[in-house]
């Protein structure tokens, strides 16, 4: 009885992962196939949120929730920027916004196929069946951040600070002294 239950749960989890994966791929494809920029930002949001759901199915609760929260805000900001900067944000003019199509399709197909071949023919180690409980995961991740990975964590924080300064400095209006 217990063995059957585990097998059924595994099949259900695999099916959910496949459905979510296909959804993520579909929305990622829609990003570059629609001419409306808002739709393309929202498709990317959907694709990233589905990735967050896949994290949740893979029992990485903290990372899943973090992914969904971060991408929801980031893609909303991206949609606003696209409205500001695109020549045809609504996609009413059906402008072609792409170039070097053959090269990009070829490169993406070759890269994707190479990774899939590498994944399929790799000799993976023993697959883990159980993961720590969410509470233990959070505790251990916190300990990892505060102990062994402290330097990486602090470097990430400093990089955010540097990026904030750089982006503010870059976005300031350029003033030519000769015009004064």
């Amino acid at each position: 009885m217990g063995g059957n239950f585990i097998i059924v749960m595994n099949i259900i989890r695999l099916s959910i992962l496949i459905i979510l994966g296909l959804g993520a791929i579909w929305f990622a494809w829609r990003v570059f196939m629609t001419s409306s920029m808002v739709r393309s930002a929202l498709s990317l949001l959907a694709s990233m949120a589905i990735l967050g759901m896949m994290f949740l199915v893979m029992e990485a609760e903290f990372l899943g929730v973090l992914q969904i929260m971060m991408m929801a805000t980031e893609m909303s900001i991206m949609a606003i920027f696209m409205m500001m900067y695109m020549m045809d944000p609504g996609g009413m003019g059906n402008m072609d916004m792409s170039h070097q199509k053959k090269l990009s399709i070829g490169t993406s197909l070759v890269a994707g196929a190479m990774v899939i071949v590498a994944v399929s023919f790799s000799n993976w180690e023993t697959i883990a069946t159980e993961v720590p409980t969410p509470a233990k995961q959070n505790y251990d991740l916190g300990m990892e951040l505060m102990k062994r990975s402290m330097m990486i964590f602090e470097t990430a924080g400093t990089s955010i600070l540097v990026a904030m300064i750089v982006s503010t400095a870059t976005a300031l209006p350029f003033k030519n002294k000769k015009d004064d």
Binding site: L14, L17, G21, I25, I105, T107, S108, G112
Partner: peptide, 21 residues
């Protein structure tokens, strides 16, 4: 399955980064 989904998303990302103007 998950790694293959990642591979396809990576391919689509490369297409987008190279083809969009």
């Amino acid at each position: 399955v998950v790694l293959s989904v990642g591979a396809v998303l990576f391919g689509i990302g490369i297409y987008g980064a190279l083809s969009q103007t």
